[in-house]
């Protein structure tokens, strides 16, 4: 932002006006949080049930459609929710415009890459074994 010292306080407070955005982000964060409660419980219970199992046993478990689908949903919810949360953290604390923008883009891309990698791993176990 250019030097604003001579701008009126009200002009500064109004700034660039409303982005007419934010409600979608806020709602998605809450919905994904609720999804993660259910999926997280299922995932924790599954991990306990699979404790000590070898690779073949886990692959056999993921051969069933329901565990594979839930695992993929879990990965989507985890990385979606994480990306939404990290976006807020970056917006809160990073104030230089270019650093903020590049961090946001990098964070989004890394989240997507990690989610895709996780989904790929599940699919490989589910279909390949």
């Amino acid at each position: 932002m250019a030097d604003q010292r001579l701008r009126s306080p009200l002009g500064r407070a109004i700034g660039l006006g409303s982005a007419k955005e934010g409600v979608g982000h806020w709602w998605a964060q809450r919905v994904s949080a609720v999804a993660l409660i259910l999926l997280g419980l299922w995932f924790a219970a599954s991990l306990v049930a699979l404790a000590g199992a070898d690779r073949a046993a886990v692959a056999a478990w993921l051969h069933h459609p329901l565990p594979a689908i839930l695992a993929i949903l879990m990965l989507v919810a985890v990385f979606y929710h994480a990306a939404l949360g990290l976006q807020v953290v970056i917006e809160d604390y990073v104030h230089s415009e270019w650093l903020k923008l590049s961090s946001l883009v990098a964070m989004r891309l890394i989240s997507i890459a990690l989610a895709v990698a996780g989904i790929f791993a599940v699919l490989r176990l589910a279909f390949g074994g």
Partner: peptide, 14 residues
């Protein structure tokens, strides 16, 4: 409500 719907004006409230 339009004027408040903004990631910063309103949604910085955590």
């Amino acid at each position: 409500l339009d004027a408040l719907e903004d990631p910063f004006k309103l949604y910085r409230c955590h």
